[in-house]
Amino acid sequence: MRRFFVWSALAALLGLILAIGGFWAYQHFYARFQPVTVTQNQAAIQRLLDESSWLSAGGGGEPLYIIGYRDSAAMQRYEREEAPKLRAAGVEVRIVVFARADREGLAQSTAAERATVAELWLTRDWTLYQRWTATPSNNWTAAGIPAADGSLARTAVVDAGRAFAASLSENLAGAGLQTRYPLIIWRDREGYMKACACSDSRSWAFVRDDLDAPDRVEPPSVAADGVPAPMAYPGDGSPESLPYPTLPPIPPADGQAAPPPGAAPVPGNAPAPARRAAPQAPRKAPEAKRTEDTTFF
């Protein structure tokens, strides 16, 4: 009987360990990457999104918001890899950028970034946003854009973007979401608001599955059959071939007729080299001829 109780206790302990390990693995490898369903403060969150100066390439489908800052590597990768898939599913991708506030006396944004964020919030210029994100942040000088520092109006716009991000994080905290960027907010098929702190790429598949987005899309430069599209070249207007340079006429070889003017040379049939003249034999030295009073050569 004692042995039975010992083995029963060991089995119960082993089962408890397996249960704890399975729950930890589920939370660590799966559950923590899932989006959350927002059940609190939905009206306040929706009002913040509607009043923000979001940027979009158009589309007119169901909106999906990507919130983040310029130097976020995860946000740049999400826009580059996932946004085309979402657009292919008919989703309108809306992007909201803000300039991070100073932290412990250290600036987390540059003057050029603050100027660009203020300009984007005021104009919602999608072309400017594309030029900004296509340029390395160290090379972006915000040339031609009014500075935000020293301007009360533009500084207020930058502060409004920061207040928007802080209010959004505060309202999403009620759903148990720890804000990390990029922050993705959308509505599912039933109309429920979903949110994802998608700083880890393992979270992206849940967003695609919820919106029926494909796992991959063909790049624009590749045709549907996988053959790269032909490149167009200037010149004769033909996209199939390179423009051929204008060459001087080639003299005909012996026994061949001259090609007509403007005819292209035949590939693999190089013109025969011109025939060199045979060297002449050396002249014979003159012989001396003697007359009666003179010798001639």
Rank of each mutant, 00 (worst) to 15 (best):
G144K: 05
A107W: 00
R100V: 03
G144C: 07
E79P: 00
G90H: 04
A147S: 06
T110R: 10
W140D: 11
T110M: 12
A143I: 15
A148H: 05
R87S: 05
L86T: 06
T116P: 13
A118L: 04
W126M: 13
Q76E: 09
Q76M: 12
S109F: 01
A147F: 08
V97E: 01
A118D: 02
G105E: 12
T133Q: 09
P136H: 06
T127D: 14
W140V: 09
A107N: 00
L106F: 14
S151W: 14
P136N: 15
E92D: 04
E81F: 06
G144M: 10
S151E: 08
A115I: 03
T123F: 11
M75N: 06
S109H: 05
M75S: 01
N139R: 11
A89P: 09
Q130H: 06
A142K: 00
A99L: 05
E81P: 08
R131L: 11
D102Y: 06
T116M: 03
A115M: 03
K85T: 02
G105R: 09
T116N: 10
K85Y: 05
T123A: 10
W132I: 05
A111F: 07
M75G: 02
A111H: 15
L106V: 14
N138I: 07
D149G: 12
G90K: 10
L152N: 11
V93C: 01
R114M: 05
A142Y: 01
E82D: 11
L86C: 01
D102M: 02
P136I: 09
T133P: 11
D125R: 05
K85F: 10
Y78K: 02
A111W: 13
A118R: 02
G105F: 09
R103T: 02
N139H: 08
A147C: 13
I95A: 08
W132K: 03
E81N: 10
A134D: 06
A147I: 03
L86M: 09
